[in-house]
C-alpha cells in the first residue's frame, strides 16, 4: 500500500497485524476443535469401551507442560522488560524463552518415543489403538504451531540484539508474546483433555 507523506490517513483502532494474528488464532483453534471433536465422536460409549485403548500419556508430555508454562512466564517478562525499555533483560529473556521452546520440542520427541515403545504407534494394527493415532495427529499439529512460535521468537530475539525492540517499537514483540501464550495455552488444554478423556 502506498501512502503519500503529505496526506495523513486516520490511524486504525487496532494494529492490523495484531488483529490478523488474533483471527489466525481463531482459525487454528477451529482446527483443534475439529480434531478433538473427532476424537470425542469416535470414542465408543461406555459399554463398548474395551474397543478403545485408554493409556496414560507419556510422562514427557507432563514435562512439556511444565516447560511450556515456564516459557510463558519468561515470555511475559520479556514483554514487560521491552515495555520498560530494559533491553538487555528483554534480549536474555527472549533467548531463555527460545531455549525453553526448543526444550519443549525435545520433550515432545521423547514423549513420542515413549509411545512407540509402548507399541502405541501412529499406524496401528489393532482397532482399539485408534486412540493413539489421534494423540499423534493432534500433538503433531500442535508441534507445527510451536515451530512457528520458535521462528517468531528467534526473529524477535534477532531484532532485540539489533536494539529494535523497545517501548516505541513493540509490534513484533507483542505478536510473539501473544502467539507464544496461545500455543502454550493450547498445549495445556490438549494435555488436560487427553488426561481426562482417556
Amino acid at each position: 500500500m502506498v501512502k503519500s507523506k503529505k496526506i495523513k490517513d486516520p490511524s486504525y483502532p487496532v494494529a492490523p497485524a495484531k488483529l490478523n494474528l488474533w483471527l489466525f488464532m481463531l482459525a487454528s483453534s477451529m482446527l483443534f476443535a475439529a480434531t478433538v471433536s473427532a476424537f470425542v465422536v469416535h470414542r465408543p460409549d461406555a459399554e463398548s469401551r474395551q474397543a478403545w485403548t485408554a493409556f496414560d500419556l507419556p510422562i514427557f508430555f507432563l514435562y512439556s507442560t511444565i516447560i511450556v508454562i515456564a516459557s510463558s512466564v519468561t515470555a511475559y517478562y520479556a514483554y514487560k522488560m521491552a515495555k520498560n525499555d530494559e533491553l538487555a533483560h528483554n534480549k536474555n529473556l527472549l533467548l531463555g524463552t527460545t531455549i525453553l521452546g526448543i526444550g519443549f520440542c525435545i520433550s515432545q520427541f521423547l514423549g513420542w518415543q515413549q509411545m512407540v515403545r509402548l507399541d502405541l504407534t501412529f499406524v496401528n494394527a489393532r482397532p482399539e489403538d485408534i486412540s493413539a493415532s489421534y494423540v499423534w495427529v493432534i500433538t503433531m499439529l500442535h508441534f507445527l504451531h510451536i515451530l512457528g512460535g520458535i521462528i517468531l521468537l528467534i526473529a524477535t530475539w534477532v531484532q532485540s540484539i539489533r536494539l529494535n525492540v523497545h517501548k516505541k517499537n513493540m509490534g513484533l514483540m507483542t505478536l510473539t508474546h501473544t502467539y507464544w501464550h496461545f500455543v502454550g495455552v493450547l498445549w495445556i488444554f490438549l494435555y488436560l483433555f487427553f488426561y481426562f478423556a482417556q
Partner: peptide, 25 residues
C-alpha cells in the same frame, strides 16, 4: 470461512493419513 475451512482441513488431514500412511480414522 474462517471458522469452517479449518474443519475441512482437519477432515482432509485425516483422509491423507488414511490414504498414504495406513491409519484407519
Amino acid at each position: 470461512g474462517l471458522l469452517s475451512f479449518p474443519v475441512l482441513l482437519g477432515a482432509a488431514i485425516f483422509l491423507i493419513f488414511d490414504r498414504s500412511f495406513g491409519t484407519s480414522f
